[in-house]
Amino acid sequence: MGLEQYAVNTLVELAPVFATFYLVALGHSLFEKAGLLDLAIDGVFFMGSSIAVRAAVASGSPVVGTVVTAIAVMFLGIALAFLMTSLPISHGAIGLSMMFLGYGIGIIVGYPARLEVGSIAMYAYSEGESMAIMAISIAIGVAVHIILKYTKLGASIRACGENPHAAASLGVNVLLTRLIAGAAGFAIMGAGSSFFTLAWQKFWDPKSYTLGYGWLAFTVALTSGRHPMILVPISLIFGGLTFYRVKIGVMYGVEKDVANLVPFIAALIAMLVCYATKLKNILAPPTSLGKVYYREERTV
């Protein structure tokens, strides 16, 4: 096998893993760009992957699974954005609560599908569709980048993340902007999480909520400064690390749990590198991320 063929095969293998991490991290980044802290990511990731399985099994089509997941998770994003913007409540507490709820709902939604069909392989995307999934994911990323950088909506989203009070005084409708960011961000996260079960793993297990891949996607977003384009290489690195850890482990005689540990240690090191170096200034989070948005003029 030539080097070229090897590279193509590797890319095909990695495409679903990349799409999963990339889209989940991208949606999460878009949500956080608007100043909304997203600690629900791991629960939403598992819930989305479960909804995808249920919808794909019910309809017989993985595409329907992805679309239904994106729509369902989108509504959740809208609800969270509404709560976090219109009420003076802790983003962290709401997010972590949603994480637990997401795990529970994920099991409730996914379990009947597993009982019904056993294996979901025949409802999953084929290997031939992997590159298309990767291309669509990158296209979505480019679109998000263009919107964030070159449009009025993008400027509003960034303004809401940096200083929502100043943005409001300049005429930005903070609630509406955050609702849009919440809807779009979570829809993208939903689509990404659907690829976890329908393109990458091709099976669903209720215990997979303990894997912590949502937190790896969180780290991907954090270490790439929530930038849609920087997310591409970082997602590839983390995707590769997660996907090949067992293979590498087998090749070098490393225990499975040592291999499982690697992405999490890498996540901590990546965070350390980003925050301890000058990269911190480039990849800094939005200034108002997670801060309660409360306008005193509401007081009567």
């Binding site: 629960g43 507490a93 709401i94 972590l96 609560s97 949603m98 994480m99 637990f100 709820l101 997401g102 795990y103 529970g104 709902i105 994920g106 099991i107 409730i108 379990y111 209720p206």
Partner: peptide, 13 residues
């Protein structure tokens, strides 16, 4: 297990 998680999540939420 889901009932415990939903119970915890919804009370917390």
């Amino acid at each position: 297990l889901e009932s415990t998680l939903v119970l915890l999540g919804s009370v917390l939420l």
